[in-house]
Design a protein around this nucleic acid. Structure first.
Lengths: 186, 186
DNA sequence: TTCATAATGTATCGACTCGATACTTAATTC
DNA sequence: GAATTAAGTATCGAGTCGATACATTATGAA
């Protein structure tokens, strides 16, 4: 009997915790806040809301609302009311917030370790993970949070990216970000 | 730019959280307690202590001591003092505790999804993860928590398993479990 | 042997997370 | 226009978590 995939995930999680605790600057920052901050740095303009973070992190909106409030007090994000829907607030990382994301030790160490695998193994690893999540999402009816450009609603109109779900043109930068409405092509 | 390995890990973590919260019976049980319980169900007799759990989960011993106390109150584990070292207490899952471990939805869903990948992809995935953790462990001087039988101290003596580190014979069942003293072969 | 040091584990405290509940405001539907 | 739905906030209690202090037992050196 060998270690299961679940065991590896648990092990990696423990390592992530350890790295964060050993980080002199960020050890006092709750892990959820950093996860939310990182999400906000890689999600598109349809997804940078309280509910977006809520779905992504798998928590309740009350909990998330509090963590985001803390992030705002740290001045790592700021809020911007939506122009169309007055219920919605967009959450955007500040320059300081982005700097924090880029200094996350966990991301750096993992990235370095992945690179040591070499391009083939890295390809196999992320490919298998992608497929795995795809299966899970299909079976469980969960959101996939995939890249905008890999979405079944992603289109081109007059040479510019366009979202077939919202029927709106897309900022070019959005297509490289993840979206809470993402659906794999059939 | 595609999703990074870190992104996949974060995504899987969110799913794990969601599954646990949706679990009718276990949603009230803190995730740390379940992680500790599962660890105790797959670790050998050198590792089933407060410090073993502490190292594995990447927390402090005070925190872990509390969670284990809660597990004991649920009667999912029981304590057994060490015969040689009177400071040490061994933590063993009860029958009820083992039943809980085997009903963890997260483990089941992930296992099912991995199986859908097929044997080759599964092999690639776990192989890459194993190598990845190996690199990380070497660079960061962290514990690897690998399988007893894959340890550089694992030996045979009179046809029976033997630990070269503790200089003690090993129960046959231990060799299939993970150990906090595990070291990869040079 | 004896005394200092280290290791395992527990107890307590305060800051914080997290889910549950209740609530406000705004959009949508009928 | 009323009912319903959705986004977000506020508050509360149980529990996590790190820090600190402490008790007990091992270990190692003088």
């Amino acid at each position: 009997m060998a270690l299961s995939f679940f065991d590896y995930v648990e092990r990696i999680n423990s390592l992530l915790r350890s790295w964060q605790r050993d980080d002199a600057e960020l050890s006092m920052v709750p892990a959820v806040q950093l996860s939310a901050l990182r999400y906000l740095s890689i999600c598109n303009h349809y997804s940078d809301t309280v509910m977006g973070v809520t779905d992504y992190l798998g928590l309740t909106k009350g909990t998330v609302s509090q963590s985001l409030k803390a992030l705002e007090e740290r001045q790592w994000i700021y809020k911007e009311p939506d122009l169309q829907d007055k219920r919605i607030v967009h959450l955007k990382p500040t320059a300081a917030g982005l700097a924090v994301v880029q200094q996350l030790v966990a991301v750096q160490v993992l990235q370095q370790a992945v690179q040591q695998l070499g391009p083939e193994l890295e390809q196999q690893l992320t490919g298998a993970l992608h497929q795995l999540l795809s299966h899970v999402q299909r079976q469980e009816q969960r959101k996939s949070f995939g890249l905008c450009k890999s979405c079944r609603f992603h289109q081109q109109q007059d040479g510019l990216p366009f979202c077939g779900l919202t029927q709106q043109p897309l900022p070019v930068t959005s297509t490289q970000l993840i979206c809470r409405e993402h659906q794999d092509p059939a």
